[in-house]
Design a protein around this nucleic acid. Structure first.
Length: 129
RNA sequence: CCCGCAGACCGUUCCAUCGCUACCGCGAGGUAGAGGAAAGUCCGGGCAACGCAGAGCAGCUUGCUUCCUAACGGGAAGGCAACGUUUAGGAAUAAACGUUGACGGAAAGUGCCACAGAAAACUAAACCACCGUUUUUGCAAAAAAACGGAACGGGUGAAAACGUGCGGUAAAAGCGCACGCCGUGUUUGGCAACAAGCACGGGGGUAAACCCCAGGCGUUGAAAAACCAAAUAAGCAGUACCCUGCGGAAUGUAGCAGGGAGGGCGGCUCGUCUUUUUUCCGUACGUCGGAUUGUAUUGUGGGUAGGUUGCUUGAGCCAAUGAGCGAUUGUUGGCCUAGAGAAAUGAUGGAAGCGCUUUGCGACGUGUCGCGAAGUGUACAGAACCCGGCUUAUAGGUCUGCUUUUUUU
RNA sequence: GGCUCCGUGGCUCAAUGGAUAGAGCAUCUGACUACGGAUCAGAAGGUUAGAGGUUCGAGUCCUCUCGGAGUCA
C-alpha cells in the first residue's frame, strides 16, 4: 500500500445527515485527549463516500471560548491524523464498508503537537472493527 | 530629556520538509490566499423576496444649527451651557484658555419631589427671632397675652418663591432705583443655531416620569432568493380491477359453479383458506354503458437529501492635481487584491528582527549611548453576501502637538 | 448568521426611584436534652454581574461591556 500524507476534501466528513447519525447512534471510546465516535456508512447512503474513511474534528466551545483557539486545536488534530492515517488504513479490513469518524478534543487546555500526536496514535491502536 | 495626555499610523520577516483551498495548464508544475479590529451586532445603506391607491391614528425611533454623505443615532465647522485655571470687579458676574455635554419644550397640561421642615408650589406659608397697637404685671427697664404688620435674618433640606448693592420703612418687601440673570415681542447682524440694542414682564426642580412639538421608519433577512433534482405526501391525468358456463329478475341490476391471477398457512410437483372493490344512474335488456369511491400502477406535480448560482469589479484601492476652514469631493492616470462551506489560509524544525531583565567592555555630559553574552517576551484575535460608521480587546513600536515638574546653559 | 429573554446572601425568590436591600431553606452560636433530632432565641453572610451617565437620591431609568439561557432549517 502506498503511503500518502495528503488530506483532501474527499477524506473529510461533510454530510450533515451522517454527522447527526453519529451523535445519535455512533460507537465511541476514549483515547485521551480524544473521544472517538465512529459508524460505518449504510450501503444505500447518498452521496456515495469517495474514501474508505471520512474524518471530522471538533473542539467544544465551552472549554475553548475563542474561534482562534478552536481553530488551533482542530488544526493540530487534523495534522496528526494526516501524518498517521496510513496506520489506521492498515488495520482496516479490505472488505469493510466505508466508515465515518469523529474526533472530539476533550482536554481542558491547549496541548502541544507532540501530546496530540500521541493521542492520535493511541486512538488508532485502540480501534477495533 | 524623562513622564503623562490627546490625535494619526504600523502591528514581525526569511529558509527547509510535509500539507490545505481556488484558478490556470494535457501534464510536470505555476499563481493567489484573514483583520485593524475579520469581534460585539449597537446603527445606517446596497442587494433579494413578499406587500403596497392616498392621508391619518397607533407603535418604534431621533432631537442646538448649518454642512458632508447613498444613508446614519456617524463625521466636520459653528453656537450655547456646565466645570476647571488665570485675569478684572466690593459683589452678583464678565473675559481668555482648556475639558466635557442624549444640548427641542417645565412662563401647554397632568404627576412626583422620601426624611427633615411652618411651608415642597393656588398672588402659598408666620416655628424662632423682628416691628406696631391694646391689656395685665412692674418705680423703671422690661416681661407675658391678644390682635395686626412683615418673607429681611435664623433653622430644615438636594432644592425655600430672581442675584448683588443702595434707597425706603415702625419693621420690611421688585415696593423703587442701578448693575446683572431669565422669558416674550421687536429692530439690527448672521444661511441658521444665536448675539447685541430697545420695550414689556417676573421665573423652583424633574421630560434617561407621562406628555407636547418637529423629523424619520412597510415586513423579513444569504437559513434571503433563483435554477437542477434521488426520496416521500397531497393534488391532477392515464391504465387495470378478469375469463367460461349455468341461471334469476323486469316492481330488476343479484347469485352459483369452474378456471386464471395475487396473497396467507402447512416441509410443499400438492392441499387448504382468502381476495379479485363500493355506491348509484340509464333512452340498454347485451351481464351493456356511464358516473362515483377505493386499491394498484405509470406519468405529471411538488422540492426534502444533495448539487449549482447568488460570491466578490466595488458608494473599490493607489498616486498626482484642482475646490473647500474642514468633513468631503471633481478631474486625470494606474491597479485587480481571499472566496471557504461541519467551513481552506496550516504543522514541525531552524535562523533573523524588535522589546524587557541581568551582566561584561568602551565612550563621555554619570545615566545615557555603542558593541557583546545569557535568559525571556513577541499581543488582541480568524473572513462566512457586500459596504459606511460606532463600540469593545490589543505585546510592542513610529510620528505630531501640548500642560506641569526637575536639571543644565 | 439572525432574533428574544435573564443576571439580587450558599440555594429558591421578593422589593412603586426614597431610611442600613427583605423572606424561606441552608450555615454558625446559645437555650432545651443524658446525647441527637425537632423547637425557641440570636448572629454572620450582598461591590444587587461590571463600567459610565440621568436624578437631591438608582437594585429599579438610559448607554456600553461581560456571562448565561431559549428560539429560527
Amino acid at each position: 500500500m502506498e503511503i500518502s500524507f495528503t488530506f483532501s476534501k474527499k477524506e473529510r466528513l461533510k454530510s450533515r445527515k451522517m454527522i447527526g447519525a453519529l451523535f445519535i447512534g455512533g460507537k465511541s471510546y476514549l483515547a485521551f485527549p480524544l473521544r472517538v465516535v465512529w459508524q460505518p456508512f449504510p450501503p444505500e447512503f447518498y452521496p456515495t463516500p469517495q474514501s474508505s474513511v471520512q474524518v471530522m474534528v471538533s473542539a467544544p466551545k465551552k472549554t475553548f471560548k475563542t474561534a482562534t483557539a478552536r481553530n488551533r486545536i482542530k488544526r493540530l488534530v487534523r495534522e496528526a491524523w494526516r501524518l498517521h492515517k496510513h496506520e489506521f488504513y492498515l488495520r482496516l479490513p479490505a472488505d469493510h464498508p466505508p466508515i465515518a469518524l469523529l474526533l472530539m478534543f476533550i482536554a481542558k487546555e491547549e496541548l502541544t503537537f507532540k501530546e496530540v500526536e500521541a493521542g492520535v496514535l493511541k486512538m488508532i491502536r485502540k480501534w477495533e472493527p
